[in-house]
Amino acid sequence: MKMLVFLALLGLHSAAAVIHSLKYFYTGSSQVPNFPEYMDVGMVDEVQISYCDSNTKRNEPKADWMNKVTADDPQYWEDMTQTCLDSQLTFKNNIETAKQRFNQTGDVHIYQQMYGCEWDDETGVVNGFNQYGYDGEDFIVLDLKTETWIAPKQQAVITKHKWDHKKAFKSQTKNYLTQECPDWLKKYVNYGKSSLMRTERPTLSLLQKTPSSPVSCHATGFYPHRATMFWRKDGEELHEDVEHREILPNHDGSFQMSVDLKLSSVKPEDWRKYECVFQLSGVKDDIITKLDKAVIRTNEGKTGIRSDGGSSEFPVGVVIGVVVVLLLLVAAIIGYVLWKKNKDKDGFKPANTSDTFSSSSSSSSSSSSS
């Protein structure tokens, strides 16, 4: 599955044009205890802007600046709510269809859709995407360049043939992803520019669970998410014995990330040659912290005092914060998390055969969700 990739994961260490994104995550579920049968989440530049589920039956703004949309479109939230209700029925039917095709009965099942667009505010280039998943794996994905659908699973081939031959549906989908979606994205960015275009530098810490564990360079409180962080030795970026972790959201709308360095490859006399470098889009100066035992915060409790005079104990609050953020993220977009977790397992595998999935959720969302 071709997911959008943060600039940070591309390893771009210099300031670049801002690529804005608008994404919608739709999730239908079956027999998941204490969880809505349907939910949808809207996000602009990885910031949540809307939420609706089968319990609330209302689509509501999740960013204050999204209330400005009604000045241009008084019926906006009513239309969004109707899309949510319509998609709920479609996703429920599609789960039942999928269960039949996979010869399944009860148990927990999840059907997902992620669609939207990205826009380069410097070049004006836009890109759209629309993809579906079932039970944590790719099901069917749109190739916008060829205007055809890719079916990684044999059970989706019928859907592929059906949608490939729906000329009106393809035309509508392409128009939404390449025209309407970018237009709405530009409006949203304008509404929230004071928040979305702000710059906040992070706090950097060196963390270590035990003396034999990797040292984690942890940055938190930065914005935007277009950032990268890496370890280097003698001015050269390291690629071996280094593990980059995902950028995660904080509860206040800022972000956090970590990059680990295995100490087994570091000679004691070479510690002073290593440093962690954080780079934020739009900020010229790098934020650098040297590999220094005196400033490493651990959970051993007796590993010395940081150079700033603070305790060197591992910040439990950071760990709890990460866990809480992850739980909230999973609660909001559980389908996306499962999909992403499994996306590298199978990849795309051409298949052959057929089916009758409804595309109404895609077409309705593409024409009225935004």
Rank of each mutant, 00 (worst) to 15 (best):
R232W: 15
P61A: 11
V32Y: 14
Y134W: 01
G301A: 04
F278Q: 10
K2V: 13
Q172M: 09
D138F: 03
N175W: 05
N299W: 03
W149N: 14
L291Y: 08
Y176A: 15
G116N: 07
F139T: 06
Q100W: 07
S365G: 15
S364N: 03
M114P: 02
Q112A: 11
Q279K: 13
N175H: 14
G192Q: 00
D121I: 07
R297F: 02
S29I: 05
E200S: 02
S359Q: 06
E46Q: 11
R201A: 02
K345Q: 14
S307M: 11
N103K: 11
L280A: 04
K68E: 07
K153T: 02
K23E: 07
G116C: 04
T303E: 04
S370E: 15
Y76W: 13
I305A: 12
D138H: 08
L7F: 13
E300D: 05
T303W: 11
L328N: 15
E60P: 04
L4F: 12
S50P: 09
E300M: 05
I140D: 00
L204M: 02
C52I: 08
G124L: 01
N175G: 09
K68I: 00
P33E: 09
S281N: 14
V32M: 09
E300S: 08
E37N: 13
S54L: 06
K187Q: 11
M43Q: 08
R297S: 01
K186R: 12
N250S: 07
D234T: 14
F222A: 00
N190A: 08
N59Y: 10
D234G: 04
A219K: 00
L185A: 03
A227M: 08
T56D: 13
L10M: 06
E243M: 04
G28A: 05
Q100P: 06
A8Q: 11
T298N: 08
T289V: 09
S360A: 05
S30I: 03
Q113T: 02
T123W: 05
H225I: 01
N130G: 11
C52F: 03
G301R: 03
M229H: 06
M114A: 12
S54H: 10
I140F: 05
S216F: 12
L7P: 06
E246R: 07
D270L: 13
W65L: 03
S29A: 12
S265H: 07
G321W: 03
M114E: 11
T289W: 00
S205W: 00
L238S: 04
V215G: 01
L85V: 09
D344G: 12
G28S: 06
L263D: 01
V5M: 09
R306H: 06
V325G: 12
N94Q: 01
A168Q: 08
Y51D: 06
V141M: 10
L338D: 15
S216H: 06
R245P: 02
F6C: 04
S311T: 08
T228M: 02
Y115E: 09
A294R: 04
C181P: 14
L338T: 07
N127T: 03
T56H: 14
F91H: 11
D72K: 13
C117N: 11
C276E: 05
V316Y: 15
Y134E: 01
S194T: 13
V325E: 14
G28R: 02
E78W: 15
D260Q: 02
E60T: 12
L328G: 11
N299R: 01
P350F: 14
W65N: 00
K166P: 03
K340E: 15
